[in-house]
Amino acid sequence: MSFIRKAGMWIAVMALTFSGFSMSVAKAAGAQDVTRGEFITAVVKALELELGDGSTTEFTDVDEILAPIVEAAKQNGLIKG
C-alpha cells in the first residue's frame, strides 16, 4: 500500500474519531458503549475496504462474522493487535 493511501486512511480515521463519529454510533446503538468490533466495522465500511473471507486473521478471539472485517483492517494497517 502506498504511503499516500495509508496517510489518507489515517486522516479519515482521525476525522471520524474527532468528529464525534463514535458518539453517533453509540447513540444509534441505544446509548450503549461501542465495542472495538463495532468501531472497526464502522471504520472499515466508511473506508470501503475490500473484505476477504477472514481465513488469514491471526486473532483467535474474533468470531467468524467479524473475521473478514478484522482481516481487512489488519491488512490495511488500521490495527496491530
Rank of each mutant, 00 (worst) to 15 (best):
M1T: 05
S2M: 07
I4D: 10
K6P: 01
K6M: 06
K6I: 13
A7P: 02
A7V: 08
A7K: 15
G8R: 05
M9F: 15
M9P: 05
I11Q: 13
I11N: 12
A12Q: 11
A12K: 15
A12T: 07
V13G: 09
V13E: 09
M14P: 01
M14L: 14
L16N: 02
L16F: 15
T17P: 00
T17G: 02
F18K: 11
S19W: 15
S19N: 14
F21H: 13
S22Y: 08
S22G: 03
S22Q: 09
S22L: 06
M23H: 03
V25H: 05
A26V: 00
K27W: 05
K27P: 00
K27Q: 10
A28P: 01
A28W: 14
A28L: 13
A29E: 01
G30C: 10
G30H: 05
G30Q: 07
Q32E: 15
Q32Y: 08
V34Y: 04
T35Q: 13
R36T: 06
R36E: 10
G37L: 01
E38G: 12
E38P: 00
E38M: 09
I40R: 07
I40E: 05
T41L: 03
T41S: 11
T41E: 02
T41H: 11
A42D: 02
V43G: 03
V43Q: 06
V44D: 07
K45H: 08
K45N: 06
K45G: 00
K45V: 02
K45W: 06
A46C: 07
A46V: 03
A46W: 04
E48C: 02
L49M: 07
L49Y: 06
E50V: 04
L51R: 08
L51F: 05
G52A: 09
D53H: 07
S55F: 08
S55H: 11
T56F: 03
T56S: 13
T57D: 01
T57Q: 10
T57L: 13
E58H: 09
E58I: 04
E58P: 00
F59A: 04
F59E: 00
T60G: 12
T60K: 15
T60E: 08
D61F: 08
D61W: 12
D63P: 02
I65W: 13
I65F: 09
L66M: 15
L66R: 08
L66D: 00
P68C: 10
I69C: 13
I69R: 14
V70A: 05
E71P: 09
E71N: 10
E71D: 05
A72W: 02
A72V: 05
A73N: 03
K74R: 14
L78Q: 11
L78S: 08
L78E: 02
I79R: 07
I79Y: 01
I79E: 03
I79V: 10
I79A: 02
K80H: 10
K80I: 06
G81A: 08
